[in-house]
């Protein structure tokens, strides 16, 4: 099992690195790609392909929009396929564990997400130094090895020792640490918003912050709808300002004209 577990980690590493490439986000990490490749590495390509079709349908409606990850499609697909191939279970049994394990993995990742938030000031400092080659290399290396270390270790443990022991391990952590870090990650974004708000805040138009908040919170409007409404207000505002500018220009224009006249 240990050898298969290493192979599975390798699949994870390759696919999540490929997702960095030109095809952009969430192509190589979708179940339809992940499952066949996992199958190929574990020696049962056909099962992988067929499971890829089912897993893609399961995860079709689940998206990671807005930074919250409901269930990790990549790791859960890998585990579902390796569970089926390695234990000889039926495909249905493998599919059945995909969602719960995805949720466990997502909450585990969320834990590290909030820990890695502590890195943000370091990155800012590094960018400020201006050595962008170093900045880029460190970012990518961090992502490839440290950022994914947690997922790779959990993946290894899940395949080598079984999903149950992974749950037991998670359960052995003190509850308040898990809860606290989970809550912290929900508040972490506030720091980013605060930095940007303090930069672009403007007395005249600052109140629009509250308009956006109310539209999203009370009316649960989707982001695009809010953006369109804000855009409408912005266009009206822009043309109103334009009137003033034009007026100013025409007054100035008259002055110069009359000066010319004399």
């Amino acid at each position: 099992m240990a050898q298969s577990a290493l192979l599975v980690v390798l699949v994870y590493f390759i696919l999540s690195t490929l997702d960095f490439t030109l095809t952009s986000w969430q192509v190589f990490t979708r179940p339809i790609v992940v499952a066949p490749i996992t199958g190929l590495f574990l020696g049962d390509f056909q099962t992988g392909i067929i499971m890829g079709a089912s897993l893609e349908s399961i995860f079709m409606g689940i998206s990671a929009i807005g930074g919250s990850v409901p269930a990790d499609a990549l790791t859960s697909s890998i585990i579902a396929v390796s569970f089926t191939i390695l234990t000889g279970a039926s495909i249905e049994a493998g599919l059945a564990i995909a969602m719960p394990i995805g949720t466990v993995m997502a909450s585990f990742n969320g834990l590290f997400f909030s820990l890695f938030a502590g890195m943000a000031p370091y990155w800012e400092h590094l960018a400020e130094k201006g050595d962008m080659k170093k900045f880029g290399i460190q970012l990518v290396l961090f992502d490839m090895f440290i950022g994914r270390a947690a997922s790779m270790i959990t993946l290894y443990l899940a395949v080598a020792y079984g999903v149950d022991s992974l749950n037991a391990l998670l359960g052995s952590l003190p509850v308040f640490i898990m809860v606290g870090l989970g809550k912290a990650s929900g508040m972490m974004t506030a720091v980013g918003f605060a930095i940007i708000t303090s930069m672009i805040w403007n007395k005249e138009v600052g109140v629009f912050f509250f308009a956006g908040f109310v539209l999203a919170k009370y009316l649960s409007m989707p982001t695009l709808a809010i953006a369109i409404l804000a855009g409408v207000v912005a266009v009206v505002y822009f043309f109103n300002e334009k009137k003033f500018v034009d007026l100013q220009a025409s007054i100035k224009g008259k002055k110069t004209e009359s000066e010319d006249f004399f």
């Binding site: 919250s68 600052g206 509250f210 956006g212 109310v214 822009f238 300002e241 500018v245």
Partner: peptide, 30 residues
């Protein structure tokens, strides 16, 4: 056309509205 300030402020209207909306959607004090 001398409208840079007007453009900045119009963009700030959309920007601040979006930040307000994103705070509502993403910041959670549980």
């Amino acid at each position: 056309s001398g409208l840079m300030t007007a453009l900045t402020k119009s963009a700030a209207i959309v920007g601040l509205t979006m930040i307000g909306a994103m705070v509502a959607q993403m910041v959670n004090v549980g």
